[in-house]
Amino acid sequence: MIRKALFPGSFDPLTNGHLDTINRSATLFDHVFVAVSTNTAKKNLFDVNEKIELIQLAINHLDNVSVIEHTDGLTVDLAKKVGADVLIRGLRNAEDFEYEMNIAAMNKIQNPDIETIILMASQQHRFLSSSLIKEVSFFGGDISKLVPPDVDRAIREKYSVLKLEK
């Protein structure tokens, strides 16, 4: 039996924490789909196509991982559509635990055949969030050790353009 998993997120931007979860998931499953969505509650730095391209650059060493766009509908429906029976979620801290527990419970009600597997963030990534990365980078801080190189370059370029437009 081929085991497929879906790792959904907004990935705005992709961090080394996300990449660590993708790498670890790739060792646990035959195929992992990274589903890129847009969180309308947040101000996005990158559009969905830019996020997909940056993730593809970061995972080019993984032949069992692909990146797909998730534009609408429930995540469990997307999982079913791509043949995944597992959702991968990352857990950084106690605050994430409550949120992820509730999401997993709701997903189980929506589709009892889909399991949620939570991977604890590696120690060196537990403090990372996309929001924190954007904030530090906006004010000129060094994020080069916290995101893949192509993401670091893209963020610096994006903020240079945005600052010029002001």
Rank of each mutant, 00 (worst) to 15 (best):
V65G: 01
N39Y: 04
S160D: 10
S131Y: 08
E53D: 15
A35K: 10
P13A: 05
V147L: 01
L87D: 00
K145S: 15
T38F: 03
K166C: 05
K51G: 08
I117T: 02
A84H: 08
L19P: 02
D96Y: 01
F127H: 13
Q124D: 13
V161H: 07
D96T: 04
R3E: 12
F29P: 08
I155C: 06
K163M: 05
D12I: 03
E98H: 06
R24H: 05
L28E: 09
A121G: 02
G9R: 12
L45P: 05
N107Q: 10
I155P: 07
A104H: 08
I133L: 12
H61E: 14
I117A: 00
N39R: 11
F138N: 04
G17K: 11
I22C: 00
D72E: 10
E98L: 02
E50H: 09
N16H: 03
E69Q: 15
E50Y: 13
Y159I: 13
A5E: 05
S10H: 02
E100C: 08
F33H: 07
G141D: 05
P149D: 15
I22F: 00
T27C: 08
S37I: 02
P148A: 09
G141I: 06
L54T: 10
L28K: 11
L28S: 01
T75N: 00
E100P: 14
R92G: 12
T40E: 14
S66A: 05
L74K: 13
I22Y: 02
I118W: 07
M101V: 08
M101S: 13
V32R: 07
P149F: 12
L162R: 14
K42Y: 06
P149L: 09
I114T: 01
I59A: 01
P112S: 09
K4G: 03
N16V: 12
G73E: 13
G9N: 00
D150N: 14
K80N: 10
K163Y: 00
G9E: 07
V147K: 05
T27Y: 13
S122D: 14
V34S: 05
K81W: 01
I52T: 15
V36R: 12
L45V: 06
K163I: 07
I114V: 14
I55D: 14
L132K: 15
E69C: 12
E53Q: 15
G141Q: 06
V76R: 10
L91H: 02
F127D: 10
H31D: 06
N16T: 09
V82I: 15
I52K: 15
G17V: 03
